[in-house]
């Protein structure tokens, strides 16, 4: 197995990680670093449960090879809080109950954080379009949309 060391800034901390060339970033985060907040759903880029920020932009970590992340910055759901306090996005999902089983929630939190950094006050259509890459099989999405609207209002 070809292995290599990669240097990745994960949630603000530089990490040196020994990876196999064929590992995905998702496997690296979960199995290599124990950051299990990022979830594996479909493993082919449809469900968005594995969404992370890669150099500040959302990406499905199941469709990134670990060595691609060498020298780059990754933010996972574990890195969204501010000094141990929930971010406004996380807080809004709690207050609106924008989740049921919670499996898709890390991906939604990362995608919402990215959405609001680009469009601070999105319309409902913009919210639904920009979160189309995150699937939720429990909520029916209405409470998720309300949570995003609350986060936008309290940002």
């Amino acid at each position: 197995m070809p292995t290599r060391h990669i240097n990745v800034n994960v949630n603000g901390t530089p990490r040196e990680i020994l990876v196999d060339s064929t590992w995905t970033l998702l496997e690296t985060l979960r199995d290599g670093l124990g950051l299990t907040g990022t979830k594996e759903g479909c493993s082919n880029g449809n469900c968005g449960a594995c969404t992370v920020l890669l150099d500040g932009k959302t990406a499905c970590s199941c469709l990134v090879l670990a060595p691609e992340a060498d020298g780059r910055e990754v933010t996972t759901v574990e890195g969204l809080d501010t000094g141990g306090r929930l971010s406004s996005v996380q807080d809004a999902f709690v207050k609106e109950g924008g989740l049921q089983c919670g499996f898709c929630t890390p991906g939604f939190l990362v995608s919402t954080t990215f959405l609001l950094s680009n469009i601070p006050d999105p319309t409902e259509d913009e919210i639904r379009l920009n979160l189309a890459g995150n699937l939720c099989r429990c909520t029916g999405y209405d409470k998720i949309v309300k949570a995003v609207q609350r986060a936008a209002a309290t940002k």
Partner: peptide
């Protein structure tokens, strides 16, 4: 093309 996550890549 796909979702925002896909378009970013």
């Amino acid at each position: 093309v796909g979702s925002v996550q896909i378009q970013n890549r």
